[in-house]
Amino acid sequence: MSGLLNALFLALLVILAVAAVRVRDLVGAVLALSAYGLVLALTWAGMGAVDVAFTEAVVGAGASTVFFLATLLRTVRTEQVRLPRARAASLAAVFLLGGLLFLATHEFPSWGDPASPPSVHVSPRYLRLGYAETGAPNIVTAVLADYRGYDTLVETVVIFTAALACWVLLGRPKA
């Protein structure tokens, strides 16, 4: 059942992504992207990545949409009707990249394999000893806030820099 649900979500994701790229009305495209973010959060919750799903629902489906709509309010809301430039070259690049990646999937471990390389290297140690070493029952929290605490600390510097860049670009509000 969960495999069927996963397949359904993935199909929805492709449809919504195509809609977000194809729709000429930019508000419509942004709302399709928002729906894409919501389905993405559901997909991740289904995969067991609940922490990431929460973040995506708040940030991807919520905050990003607000940013996009705020931008559109200050600018235009339609894409001009014209064929994309250098369409053949773009499609050739897309198909070349897609073909190479498709060939690479042959080497990947089969999906959900508990013995796949990413699952046997460091993470079993975190799972076994994380609670004893950090006291956090949720091991994702333990990794984020303890084992990789500096990573998370510097992440706030990234956000601060981005906020600073937006402030420099847009200036203070006139009112």
Binding site: A49, V122, S123, Y126, V140, V143, L144, E155, V158, C166
Partner: peptide
């Protein structure tokens, strides 16, 4: 595996930062 979850939380935050800029 909790490690990709923690790494991708960071990636989402960076994604929003790049989007804002």
């Amino acid at each position: 595996n909790p490690l990709p979850h923690a790494l991708m939380l960071t990636a989402i935050v960076v994604m929003v930062a790049t989007l804002g800029v």
